[in-house]
Amino acid sequence: MSAVTHVGMADLVSVRHPATLVTLGLGSCIGLVIFDPSTKVAAMAHIMLPDSRDAKEVPKPGKFADTAVPLLLEHLKNLGAVKGQLKAKMAGGAQMFNIPGKDNSLLAVGSRNVEATTAMLAKHGVPLVASDVGGNKGRSVEFNTETWKLLVKTLGTGSQEL
């Protein structure tokens, strides 16, 4: 049994195998994991917002897609990950409240989180090999370095492995 590490809101955690990374109750937030099975390292961030543009300061880089992705890659590099072997998986980015006729950007932050995270991964050349995003249901995720699978749990509809 590997140690379970909880990744809180806006947190960013990197681990060596064997380990399990968990983040709970994702709504519009994104659970993003980047990993390298060849060197057996992984890192997860609980991203809240697409970009750090409007923030006065960024004490928690895991909070924004544009600051989380580069820092995840730096952590993985420090643990010895091989750049060409890195892969990413993500879940989250739901819209919990949908008001018909109101396309409000504060309520639709989930889809902007998905777009920004996808764009940052592409920019850094990390392939996104699996994702479960969007919709209107919250998710909890669990990533295990035994299997390199991301377990996504949703209320009512059960769980699936990515």
């Binding site: 109750g25 994702l26 917002l49 109101k102 989930g110």
Partner: peptide
């Protein structure tokens, strides 16, 4: 607006609050 109803995990529902204040 008209109301919107959600039944889900507390953390997911409260993301809308965290994200709104979190911008600044």
């Amino acid at each position: 607006s008209v109301p919107a109803v959600a039944h889900d995990m507390l953390g997911s529902i409260m993301d809308v609050v965290a994200a709104t204040f979190g911008i600044l």
